[in-house]
Design a protein around this nucleic acid. Structure first.
Length: 204
DNA sequence: AGAACGATCGACT
DNA sequence: GTCGATCGTTCTA
């Protein structure tokens, strides 16, 4: 199966964060493919970014994942009850990552719905708030700290450019552009709180 | 050992 | 718009 290579992730984090928009997150769970089209990302760069867990190259048990080779998954628990999915970027030794903030379901939707909402019926409210946040993405794709450190060049979790890469039909391309803005929930990060390092696809 | 806090979400006014 | 849930990580001592 064609998938993004380690070289894809080994680049500048701001580039990777933008290039990931429109690609497909693929999670293999019990033989089924759960797929989401990535629509929103944020960049975190340890070298210079006070919002990054590895700011100033701070290496602890948690941040050690950020020091792995590019193309690994960094998952952590936030607020005691949610998880966040990131992809490690930059050449190995530069701790940095891209946070996956939102996706649109593209395959395996039945399973994703059940993981996300249990047996609760869908409503317009739930439809609107399906996978539009980092904790929601992890819930819908059954990702937890148990998956921390997964190699994205492997079979369980990876990203591909096109649905054709995993043998699925491709929807027609939409008219979209990239919009940049400040990141969410990092008001404590002093000057870094205003960095325009959040990227999303918006319809024309 | 203890305390503070968080890259969030959903219920509620 | 506000607010509480809930617990691992990190820092201080």
């Amino acid at each position: 199966m064609a998938r993004l290579s380690r070289e894809f992730y080994a680049r500048d984090t701001l580039t990777v964060a933008q290039k990931l928009l429109g690609t497909y997150l693929v999670r293999r769970l019990n033989g089924e493919f759960l797929v989401g089209r990535i629509t929103e990302t944020e960049a975190y760069i340890g070298r210079c970014d006070k919002a990054c867990h590895a700011y100033g190259y701070r290496k602890t048990a948690r941040t050690s994942t950020l020091f792995m080779a590019p193309g690994h998954a960094y998952l952590y628990l936030i607020y005691g009850m949610y998880h966040c999915l990131n992809f490690v970027t930059e050449p190995e030794g530069e701790p940095a990552a891209v946070l996956i903030r939102a996706v649109e379901s593209a395959a395996g939707e039945e399973t994703i719905r059940r993981l996300r909402f249990g047996e609760k019926p869908m409503t317009p409210y739930r439809e609107k708030n399906f996978l539009n946040g980092p904790g929601k993405v992890c819930k819908g794709f059954a990702l937890t700290t148990a998956d921390n450190g997964l190699d994205l060049t492997g079979e369980e979790l990876f990203v591909c450019e096109s649905l054709a890469d995993i043998g699925l039909p491709c929807p027609p391309p939409a008219a979209e552009r990239i919009c940049a803005g400040p990141r969410i929930g990092v008001d404590y990060a002093e000057e870094a709180k205003d960095f325009p390092w959040r990227f999303q696809l918006v319809k024309e």
